[in-house]
Amino acid sequence: MNKIHVKTNINGDQVEFLADSRETLLDCLRDHVGLTGSKEGCGTGDCGACSCIFDGELVSSCLVLGVEAEGKSIETIEGMAGQEDLHPLQKKFIEMAALQCGFCTPGILVAAKALLEKNNNPTETEVRYWLAGNLCRCTGYDKIIKAVMETAKDIRETA
């Protein structure tokens, strides 16, 4: 077993860990760094529960190797809230009951934040297609889509 020393930046903190070369970034986040907010629903990039931002790109962290994190910058659900307050999407999800079991919620929030940073005025169709890679089995997506649209509206109004 040859472990590889990986130095990376996660949610603004310098982090080092030893990765087996077969481990995914998701494994490393969960098992070596203790950040279990990113979830594994499939391990094959189909469900989006492990969505993270990898050097500015929205990725399924189960499809990225842990060793690829070397020298990169990673954002996970744990880095989404500010010191004082939740991110507007997090607040809106709670207010509008956009989660039931909550398992897909971290991935959906990370993906939705990535969308709103690119486009703060998406159509409903754009939101639905952007989030088509994030499976939710509880909500039927209705309240999720509405919460993202409402947050976008709030962001536009306060901008």
Binding site: R30, D31, L35, T36, G37, S38, K39, E40, T76, I77, E78, M80, A81, L86, Q90, F93, I94, E95, A97, L99, G102, F103, T105, P106, L109
Partner: peptide, 23 residues
């Protein structure tokens, strides 16, 4: 009425512990 759920905070921040989250 429609108040915020008590476990909402943990579930939107990734802190809620599911089956695989414990070691």
């Amino acid at each position: 009425t429609r108040p915020n759920r008590p476990d909402g905070f943990e579930k939107v921040t990734g802190r809620a512990k599911y089956g695989a989250d414990i070691s």
